[in-house]
Amino acid sequence: MKEKLLEVKDLKVYYPKYKGIFKKLAYHIKAVNGVSFSIKEGSTLSLVGESGCGKTTIGKAIISLVPVTHGSIVYDGDDITNIPEEGRKKIAQNIQIIFQDPYGSLNPKMKIGYILDEAVRVKYPGLSRARTAEKTVKLLEKIGLYSNDYDKYPHEFSGGQRQRIGIARAIAVEPKCIICDESVSALDVSIQADIINLLVDLQREEKLTYLFIAHDLSVVKYISTDVAVMYLGRIVEYGSSDQIFKTPLHPYTISLMSAVPEVESKKKKRRIILAGDVPSPVKTPSGCPFHPRCYMKREECERIELKFEEIGKGHYTACPFNRGVK
């Protein structure tokens, strides 16, 4: 087991905004602003945060779908930052992505068999048509569909089945690492459980590594080994799933958790309702970017230089004040 299968070092992704007829550079949107993490082979790291915090951008940057402004991405010892389009097939064999919307990510005019054949051919370029189809059928069975689904079109499947097809396409190239970008968010509870089970089973069988991008904390708690909580393009807290869910330290993590409505609330929980929205990444607040919404705010928060401190073993927080109840 490799300790660091995928490593992201000080990643910054800025989107330039231009103004006027001469397209003068006006400002940058700092979507990801200095993020570092690494994933151990066979484990699951979850990126959690509100919309606009940059979690999807990180996923896209890893597979070179958006240009990286600064920092590096290392996969199994190879630098894969900003790979030009021709070289992408090579990363695609190792890192795949499953998108949120199973409706939008399958071509409606193509038969499922054809969509999957295409992916199989990336891994096995020289294979005859019959052998490719054979592999595709095996793939369909593996993810819980039937061999006669080969000739169907995407619209003939339900949402859950379509997401299975998305998963089949991702595992067709036998990758080591899969980025799941909100892959179960659009599904109903009973279907969602099925897909999560499938993802967990596949991980066990194929020793897959997942980067799981999600906002649903109950799913994250269930599936993750480690969790990184993001706010405005930065990681504010990082730790093992146990550390994050049992002893959350950053006020943002705490309020995020308190906001989740639960069916069975054993004790009367204190609900912290954050005021306001996530500020725009165009003008990030000074000091700690969370201070305008923080319920533990102190005066110095507007000025402090943020540091990422290790509190427990492998448990990091960006808040210099809250150390939990000792």
Binding site: S190, A193, K221, E262
Partner: peptide, 14 residues
């Protein structure tokens, strides 16, 4: 089938 009803590692009911 709610994930919050399960401890990690246990198969989710569906």
């Amino acid at each position: 089938s709610l994930p919050s009803m399960h401890s990690p590692g246990k198969k989710l009911y569906s």
